[in-house]
Each structure stands twice: as structure tokens, then as C-alpha cells.
Design a protein around this nucleic acid. Structure first.
Length: 279
DNA sequence: AATGGCGCCTGAACGC
DNA sequence: TGCGTTCAGGCGCCAT
């Protein structure tokens, strides 16, 4: 199974090209098949723009643009669930899944996305629509020190949904996709079906710590696997091999030896060990 | 207001 | 070079 571009992958992708594209001058912008939303501006109009310091927010990337020292908005990028970004000097002709090229004097940033759930959108600023609209509902970054156990617990108490569904929503904390949400809940010993408002303060603290350690470990692994990302197009299961429950229905729980179960929550698969994870 | 569910896409895995 | 079906998933959006 291929890995999804979750927060760790997006972060490692950003680190891989941010330093090289910073200050580059845009020569042209090429689009392939439609992505999730239209670019929102004439592709020809980007020539001559200068790229600033790229940043990440949740699973979105922001590439600020300027022209002759004056801000000119930027590009908001999302990898959807099958997208990958590569920055190189000679990327070659666009393949059938290459739907965005930002050609600059420092190299070409290319988005490859077979399923086209990804997006590249121009916005006049990060804090103006459409960018601000898309980012408006994002919760805090997982490693934001302002996200204390108290804040996290308060967010949980406000909700009645199953905790796993809440994690996936990204409103309590961004970055936990299906794989990491399942793994973090296993690590914390919490049943994914537990109602948010029934989670005690100590368990909330434990869950936050598990979300952080799960993402941190994936980030470290992402750093080592992402180097072959372009060739492999989607990583092999470096993390999969480490997963305790995700994708392991019917197999033994690595902690107690019981059987890992698969259930469905909100049209998504959830994997859990009912012996190790309590409500 | 909060919650549940839908649909966009394509490739891989599977059943016959 | 078998073909049809099912599944995977992020997340904005709509319905309730």
C-alpha cells in the first residue's frame, strides 16, 4: 500500500525545496488536467514574479509571490491524497499525471497527482480569500506549544462525536490523517469510538502526547523515505511495517496478541485492538 | 450549531 | 492485453 501525503510528508516535501525555490523568478506556469479547484488567475500572468519563503499550514503549502518588491499574493497548494511535489532542474516532459509546473530560473516545481484531489490556487494573500477560507477551520499545529493538554481537553469536551472522527476533522489539531489517527489512538489506549466529551483530562493529555509522538516518528521516517519518493512515486511501506493496527485487520495486536479489528466510522476504515483500547 | 454523509478521482486488488 | 467491481482516502460542501 502506498503512503498518503499526510502532514509529515508535506513537511519533508517543503524542506526539500523551500531553500532552493526561495528568491527564484517565475518563467512560466503550466497546468495539466483540472485539479480540485481552478487556479483562479491567468496562468500567463505569473511570468516575472519572484517566489518568497514557502511555508506549511496543516497539509497546505503557501508559496508567496512578489513583483518588483511588491507582494503579489501567492499559491496555495494541497497534495490531496495522491499528490507529490518535486523540484528539479530538468524534470523532462510532463507525464500524464503531471498537472502543474512552476518553471523558475532556479528549477521547476512539479505537482504529480494521479487522482487530482490536490489543488493549486492563487490567493491575493494568505489571510484573504480564497486561502483564508480554506485555512479557516484548521486547528492548531500539533507541535504548537500553545496547544496544551488543557486546551486540547477543552476542545474534546465541546464535542460529542467519536474521538477518531474528531481527530480526522483537523479542528482539534491538524495533521492526523487516517493512518496516524488510528495509530495515535492505539498508542494512547483509547477506543476510537469513545465520545470526545467522555475523555478525561489525563487521557486527553495522553492522546495529545500520542498524536505528537506518532507524527514525530513519521516525520523522521518520512525524511528517510522521501528521498526515493520521485522514483517510487509514492513510498513503499516504511511506516506500514511499523504500524501497530492500521491495515492489519485480522492480524495479531503487537501488544497483547489479540486480533486487530476493522470497523467503519464516517465512511472511513478504523483499525483497533478492543483489548488494548478502552472507552 | 453541530453532526452525518457525499463525491470528487484513479490505480490496485480482487472475483469470476 | 480479461473484464467488471470494490476499495482507498482529504476535505469542502450540502443536508439534516
Amino acid at each position: 500500500m502506498r503512503r498518503m501525503p499526510e502532514l509529515p510528508e508535506v513537511e519533508v516535501t517543503l524542506r526539500s525545496f523551500a531553500g532552493r525555490i526561495d528568491g527564484a523568478e517565475v518563467r512560466s506556469l503550466r497546468l495539466g488536467l483540472p485539479l480540485r479547484w481552478p487556479l483562479g488567475r491567468d496562468a500567463q500572468s505569473f511570468a516575472g514574479c519572484r517566489v518568497g519563503t514557502a511555508l506549511r499550514r496543516g497539509k497546505y503549502l503557501w508559496l508567496p509571490l512578489s513583483r518588483q518588491g511588491r507582494a503579489e499574493g501567492g499559491l496555495l497548494l494541497h497534495l490531496g491524497m495522491s499528490g507529490s511535489l518535486a523540484f528539479g532542474n530538468a524534470p523532462g516532459p510532463a507525464g500524464r499525471h503531471d498537472h502543474f509546473d512552476l518553471v523558475t530560473d532556479q528549477g521547476v516545481l512539479r505537482l504529480t497527482d494521479p487522482r487530482r484531489f490536490g489543488a493549486v490556487i492563487w490567493s491575493p494573500a494568505l489571510d484573504q480569500p480564497p486561502a483564508s477560507t480554506l485555512l479557516a477551520r484548521l486547528g492548531p499545529e500539533p507541535f504548537d506549544p500553545a496547544l496544551t493538554p488543557q486546551v486540547f481537553h477543552a476542545g474534546l469536551r465541546r464535542r460529542r462525536t467519536a474521538v477518531k472522527v474528531a481527530l480526522l476533522s483537523g479542528e482539534l489539531v491538524v495533521g492526523a490523517g487516517n493512518i496516524y489517527a488510528c495509530e495515535a489512538l492505539f498508542d494512547a489506549g483509547i477506543d476510537p469510538r469513545t465520545r470526545c466529551d467522555r475523555i478525561s483530562r489525563p487521557r486527553a493529555e495522553r492522546l495529545l502526547a500520542s498524536v505528537r509522538s506518532t507524527l514525530a516518528r513519521a516525520l523522521a521516517l518520512g525524511g528517510s523515505t522521501l528521498r526515493d519518493f520521485r522514483d517510487a512515486h509514492g513510498m513503499d511501506g516504511a511506516y506500514q511495517a511499523e504500524a501497530a493496527v492500521y491495515g492489519r485487520a485480522g492480524l495479531a495486536c503487537p501488544r497483547c496478541g489479540g486480533t486487530v479489528r476493522r470497523i467503519v466510522q464516517g465512511q472511513r476504515s478504523t483499525f483497533l485492538c478492543t483489548a488494548c483500547q478502552k472507552r
